[in-house]
Amino acid sequence: MRLTDVLLLATLVFSIGLYGVLTRRHAVALLLSIELMANAANVVFVAFATLRGGPGEALVLFALVVTVSEVAVGLALVMLLYRRHGDTVLDLARETKH
């Protein structure tokens, strides 16, 4: 297993996540896509830690914690969005402009 293969995998996962962020209309799907992007980064950490050494694995644990918190906040926002507009379509949240 070569580093290049793992990096290609990570890039693929990240791109899928990015595509999802840019195209999905629902907030939950958006959160899932963000999760994908974050995990792509985690894969890169682990790959470098395994093949080259270094503290990457420890950093992954931190990253996971951060991601969990982020998801918690994100889900709370989704709840609010739903209460406010009766749906979780993100485009309803135009309050940032007004």
């Binding site: 962020v21 958006l30 309050e95 007004h98």
Partner: peptide, 14 residues
Amino acid sequence: LQTGRTRDYVFAVM
């Protein structure tokens, strides 16, 4: 430029 649509902002970030 300020559309208020989250996806536009994500796009701009990208």
